[in-house]
Nucleic acid binder design. Structure first.
Length: 413
DNA sequence: TCTGGGGTCCTAGGACCC
DNA sequence: TCTGGGGTCCTAGGACCC
């Protein structure tokens, strides 16, 4: 049966949400109407553009560029820090509204959702429903969205890109030649900065040219990725809308340090801090990890990582940290670091997460300690228990993982 | 004091086994 | 009588997304 799929995309999400909140709390200027951005903290070396207003976009300010560069394009740019808990509650409000239309709502990222409306529209047509959702976001939630409507996720997502902001567009299969194919190929999902030059060399500049290229040729030049984007260019995608609860594949924390880390002692404190938070998230998901990865970025921004597979999966902060520490010692090139990360993957469900009272091995004692600390932090706040190594070290005892409830993001549809 | 942090998936090469 | 060859696992790195 033909499906009915919506893609709902919040326009300039962080910036819109910030603007709405400030208007509701007495601000006289709507940030959306002036050149403004949400940006990270420059003093702690996180100074990039996270979201921009439409007037800021007119100065050619791009998401991800440095605030330094953005200011050089627009000297009186208004820069505001992000308020993640606010964005999470806005995202939740959007999901609640969408769930009134269908139980099949997939939160693809904080500001994008897919909705499978198949069999959920009775009196109204799909187009009327899509339009109504767009209107209700604006009038009831206070921010505008773009809604794309089609028969699969890829086409719905491409439809919501057509014209912004506050628009609803369809891209049904019969509309592909008219609406999808004239678009520049850089607009196609998964055509990123490394893929585009290869496509240009093959004289492919529009999505239509990609759709009509030989799949064998694309596969030859771009491996399996070539076939994937060829299918997308032809509107082919049968991935399902997965309502919230898809199994998480990996849990990672990383942080850019406010100063260059050049001693092993400081680096290990950061790794302990990152491991602690990642392991807490692992345990709260009732999972065990089999692979630990440590990643480093030096002051030239070159990135490298080492990973290790464990003999048996674990959720113990101490056991995971031991691996991270040993990985770090074997990989560190003794250059100053600006970024460190710990990632846990190859996750399995922890079916025995209630540890036995009678088992008194070192491992189970360690698990009992983790469990107790998790409980204290849940009741009295994350800073209620802190390892003795951290005070006065200048290093936060729990790095990353602050927005645990924030939805996971996925790159593939 | 110029470049975040959270993800997913793919590929290439080496080790190892039969 | 030199160095087959397929399959699997593991690791490092890359590409892409929001």
């Amino acid at each position: 049966m033909e499906r009915i799929i919506l893609h709902v995309d919040v326009n300039s999400a962080y910036l819109s949400w910030e603007a709405v909140y400030r208007l509701q709390h007495g601000a006289r200027i709507d940030l959306r109407t002036i050149p403004s951005v949400i940006g990270g903290d420059e003093k702690s070396r996180r100074g990039i553009v996270l979201a921009k207003s439409i007037p800021a976009k007119k100065y050619d300010i791009q998401t991800g560029e440095t605030l330094w560069s953005a200011r050089s394009k627009c000297p009186n740019l208004v820069v505001l820090p992000p308020s993640y808990p606010l964005y999470l509650s806005c995202s939740d409000a959007l999901v609640r509204l969408l769930k009134k239309y269908s139980p099949k709502v997939e939160r693809y990222s904080g500001d994008e959702c897919f909705v499978d409306l198949t069999g959920c529209t009775q009196k109204k047509t799909a187009e009327e429903t899509a339009w109504e959702i767009k209107e209700r976001c604006r009038t009831e939630l206070g921010f505008t969205v773009n809604v794309g409507l089609s028969t699969n996720k890829l086409l719905a997502k491409m439809a919501s890109e057509l014209e912004k902001p506050d628009k609803m567009h369809t891209m049904y299969p019969h509309e592909i030649p008219e609406k999808l194919w004239p678009m520049p190929v850089r607009k196609l999902f998964l055509s990123g900065p490394k893929t585009l030059p290869k496509l240009y060399k093959l004289n492919i500049f529009t999505i239509g040219q990609l759709a009509h290229a030989s799949p064998d040729l694309l596969q030859h030049h771009l491996k399996s990725h070539g076939l994937t984007i060829w299918k997308y260019a032809n509107g082919i995608d049968d991935s399902p809308v997965v309502p919230d609860g898809r199994a998480v594949k990996g849990i990672g924390n990383s942080t850019t340090t406010p100063f260059d880390v050049d001693s092993e002692k400081e680096a290990l404190l950061y790794l302990l801090s990152l491991t602690e938070t990642a392991a807490m998230r692992l345990r709260s998901n009732k999972m065990l990890a089999r692979v630990v990865t440590v990643s480093l970025r030096d002051t030239n921004l070159s990135f490298y990582s080492h990973q290790r597979r464990l003999v048996s999966p674990t959720d113990s902060t101490l056991l995971l940290y031991r691996q991270a520490k040993s990985l770090f010692k074997e990989m560190w090139r003794r250059e100053p670091l600006r970024h460190l990360g710990v990632h846990l993957s190859d996750l399995v469900e922890n079916k025995f997460y209630q540890t036995s009272f009678f088992d008194d091995t070192a491992v189970s004692r360690q698990q009992a300690i983790d469990k107790t600390i998790d409980e204290i932090r849940a009741s009295y706040g994350a800073d209620a228990v802190v390892r003795g190594l951290f005070p006065h070290s200048g290093i936060p005892p729990l790095c990353g993982g602050v927005y645990e409830a924030f939805p996971t993001m996925r790159s593939l549809l």
